[in-house]
Design a protein around this nucleic acid. Structure first.
Lengths: 344, 344
DNA sequence: CTGAAAGCGCTAACAA
DNA sequence: TTGTTAGCGCTTTCAG
């Protein structure tokens, strides 16, 4: 931003007034074609570009939206970001992406920082820590100023705003049911992050399916573990002490880890043990074997969220008109599960 | 940005002048403690926050940097982003992240858009298409305005600016050498994106190692293939028609695909065929077997790039003082290669 | 110690 | 058709 030319300089150089230049560059009907041509030519020659900052200050609108991502290394979020980015670009918005690293403090700081004129609205995913602490004042504050927020993936009922989420219970239900239909009797579930309510929902769906089909849940087959090393140990432990012929992994990494453990024990997948993962990312697709997974349509989630926000920013929807959109999932069959012998 | 209170409103409410409020909030020595206290209290009560836009307009500095990422789904870039983000945050900068999707046009648009006062400088990775087209005028234009750019990972000699890159040739050389030392005789290389000069460098390193150790390169063992389906076919083909006991994959996905192909053919890894991957991401770590890989320290790359840029922005380095920093790699041994029997 | 005024780059109402 | 002026929110001389 150094040698950049301003409207003022053009005005001086051409001996016209600042507003004439402004109008000419905006192709106003008020200006004679001659003057317009002269000014526009000069502007082009000197690569004039309007200062976005000044425009935003004037319009009280920045045409940029803030994106909050808990963890960019997570394939789901990376894909969601793409979806958001796509819609934003299409509609002429830029995005400013911030990674919270699942930290409450970082989340609060970031939102404070951005909500000072920098952005018009947020598309955010709440961090694990925030969800654990159940402290949502930073959301409330921003909402109170009528800055719209659309929450995606992880949400909480105490935050009153638009949401775009996965039908976790149902998806887990269907995945578990699939395992049962494919002949599995002793189905384990592997979950992480105790604090995450979405994981609770997934366990709920799992339990629901078991119960529905007359299987009594077995506490020993439910693993909740964040730490990776411990997870390997716990899976091995579980396999040592229990009959298991199906595993439902609630996230992608633990699905890959389960696969590794089984491969190492020379357990045949899916002949002896089937695995279903959640979130249809790279690890599922490129694993050995490729994992049957609950595909989450992260991209769509991002698109829907961004669309909702922008519609709100542009007044197509009233600020107080709040909605939760549910993005369905789809089970993608690959090689880690047996082919269904009962159609349903 | 609705009910947000401004300095002006505070001034009116308290019956003082605007500049007094400004100074009080900035803790200026010119203002009496009493007035200061009064103003600061009022400001806090009403959650006053300075408008970033106005500040930036004033200072001709936005304290934000633009990040260009060709593809956020790539684990390497996602990690690099984290590194950049970390440094930026530490130094009080915010970042605005843009995904170019490897598109020349998107890259040009994005850079144009941001270089209008929105950002102070760029940390960018050139897109594949741009590299293919060899059109770098958008970089030149920005550089000419003395807006600093730091290129990371992919660069080109025609763009005269700071760079932070991997020592591709050497890394590929070392990886290939490792395979040879571990007993492999017939080493294949799998590469993608013909347009990418970094991939050329990696092939170069591979060839260099072969030649150095007296192995004549075999054209049939060099695969360059972007399309995934075709890649599987070509690998199978190669394995059908050639003796191969080592594979060096120039990126992570093709490493995973090679693993899948070998597993499917019931080839024992590493007993019969060894694999080394490039970029030490999730796929390598969580694959079956986990892949020995060239670890690229994406995070460090991001940190170094961001640090360089910010140092420049803050005048610690002159604009014209241009440097290329090389980030070394490290071979991480996992289970896809045999243990070395020759120490070196 | 406090305030008036100019200015960052731009737009827009109003005059000329 | 063109120019003057005020103002977006803030900082910063310079007077008072």
């Amino acid at each position: 931003m150094n040698k950049r030319i301003t409207i003022k300089q053009i005005a001086k150089a051409l001996g016209v007034s600042i507003s004439t230049v402004s109008k000419a560059l905006n192709d106003s009907y008020e200006i004679s074609d001659e003057t317009k041509a002269k000014i526009q030519e000069y502007a082009k020659l000197h690569k004039y570009k309007p200062n976005t900052l000044a425009l935003s200050l004037q319009n009280k609108k920045t045409k940029t939206i803030g994106i909050l991502i808990p963890n960019i290394l997570n394939y789901y979020f990376a894909r969601a970001l793409r979806g958001i980015e796509k819609v934003a670009t299409e509609k002429g918005y830029s995005i400013i992406t911030c990674i919270t690293n699942e930290s409450y403090e970082k989340e609060v700081e970031t939102m404070e920082m951005l909500s000072n004129g920098t952005i018009d609205g947020f598309v955010a995913c709440v961090s694990v820590e925030t969800l654990k602490l159940k402290k949502f004042d930073h959301f409330h504050d921003i909402l109170e100023e009528e800055t719209p927020i659309v929450l995606y993936d992880r949400a909480h009922k105490d935050i009153k705003c638009d949401k775009v989420v996965t039908d976790n219970i149902k998806s887990a239900y269907k995945a578990t049911r699939f395992l049962m239909k494919s002949g599995c009797k002793d189905i384990a579930i592997i979950s992480t992050s105790e604090g995450l309510n979405i994981n609770k929902f997934r366990i709920k769906g799992y339990l629901k399916a078991l119960t529905k089909y007359g299987v009594t849940p077995n506490e020993n087959l439910i693993i909740k573990q964040d730490n990776e090393i411990n997870l390997i140990e716990r899976i091995n432990n579980m396999l040592d002490n229990n009959k298991v012929d199906g595993i439902f992994s609630v996230d992608e990494v633990s699905g890959a880890i389960a696969t590794q453990v089984l491969n190492k024990r020379n357990v045949k997948i899916p002949e002896e043990v089937s695995i279903i993962g959640f979130t249809n990312g790279l690890l599922s697709r490129y694993g050995s074997p490729p994992l049957t997974s609950v595909n989450r349509f992260a991209h769509t989630t991002g698109e829907v969220a961004a669309t909702r926000l922008i519609d709100k920013l542009e007044g197509k929807i009233k600020f107080d008109d709040i909605k939760t959109e549910i993005i369905k999932t789809k089970l993608v069959e690959r090689e880690s599960t047996k082919k269904l012998f009962i159609k349903f």
